[in-house]
Simulated scan of single mutants.
Amino acid sequence: MTNTDPYRPVDDTACQMARNLIENATFGALAVLRPDSAFPSVSRVALATDGQGHPVTLISTLADHTRALTTNPACALLIGEPGDKGDPLTHPRLTLHAIAQFVVRETEKHAALRARYVSLRPKAKLYADFTDFGFVTFTISDAVLNGGFGKAWCLAPTDIWPDQRTT
């Protein structure tokens, strides 16, 4: 019988590629489930990382994706963009399956995220303190890394952030 599993065994190369994609992402595609529709929706969102290297975004309560996440926090983030040359499908990309959490203002976590986010995305200082904007973090359940044709891996959160392994 032929093995049709498209995923390679997880190795250091895959783990590092996933970390690099997250660390270098300035934006991503956020997929949400719309509460008023049977169809999912995808939006481009700005991204940065928290102090542990996890993705974080700053979004407005006026956005359709924010309303969707409030109703159902299950979502996916696609990060990694094609380069200037070659077939777009040969460039690495990472899909993170996650649960979104809104960060409460006036907390230490919010203050730390704001400081880091603005340091990484200085233009966000223009709107980071608007009352309709808030930070969203993501608890990752798993990830699918596509490193180009014939190079795919399923990753656990501990593959991406090994310092979070429990002993």
Score class of each variant (00 low, 15 high):
F149R: 03
R121V: 08
T107F: 15
R105E: 08
A100P: 11
V118L: 01
P88G: 02
F135W: 04
S60G: 04
G148M: 05
V103A: 10
A111Y: 13
T70V: 13
F130Y: 07
T61G: 10
S60I: 06
R114N: 05
F102C: 10
P122A: 01
P73R: 15
F138R: 11
R67V: 03
F149V: 08
E108M: 14
K85S: 15
K85Y: 15
L78K: 00
L62P: 09
P92T: 03
T70M: 14
L89T: 11
R121C: 02
A74L: 14
E106V: 11
K109S: 12
A76L: 00
A128E: 02
A76Y: 00
F130Q: 00
L94D: 00
R93E: 00
Q101R: 11
R105L: 09
T71N: 15
L77A: 02
D129T: 00
C75V: 08
H97D: 08
N146D: 01
H97G: 02
V103S: 15
V144L: 11
A74Q: 15
D64E: 11
G147E: 03
A68K: 02
K109W: 13
L126T: 10
F102S: 14
Y127V: 08
A63Q: 08
L77G: 03
G83H: 09
R121F: 01
L69P: 07
G86N: 14
T95C: 05
I99T: 12
S119P: 06
A76I: 02
A100Q: 11
V144S: 05
R93S: 02
T107V: 15
G80D: 02
K109E: 15
I59W: 02
L77I: 07
F135N: 06
H91S: 08
F130E: 03
L145Y: 02
I79A: 01
I79C: 04
R121M: 03
A112E: 15
I59D: 00
D64F: 03
L94Q: 01
S119G: 07
D142W: 13
A63L: 07
R114S: 08
G83N: 09
F149H: 11
A100R: 10
R116M: 14
L94A: 01
K109N: 12
P88L: 06
L62H: 10
L78P: 04
R114D: 02
E106H: 14
L69F: 09
T66W: 06
K109F: 09
H91I: 00
C75Q: 07
G80R: 00
S119Q: 12
K125V: 02
A115M: 09
L77M: 04
D132I: 06
F135Q: 05
I59L: 03
T71I: 07
D84S: 12
A115D: 14
S141M: 07
G134V: 03
F149S: 10
T107M: 13
G86C: 11
R116V: 09
Q101N: 13
A74Y: 12
A128T: 03
F138K: 10
V144T: 11
H110E: 15
Y127L: 03
F149K: 05
E106C: 06
T107C: 13
C75W: 04
A128D: 01
V144Y: 05
Q101W: 12
T95V: 12
P88H: 04
C75D: 06
A111S: 12
V144I: 15
Y117P: 06
P82Q: 05
F133Y: 04
V104H: 12
T66Y: 05
G83P: 08
K85G: 10
L145D: 03
T139Y: 09
N146C: 09
L78C: 05
P73W: 14
F138W: 08
H91T: 05
A68E: 00
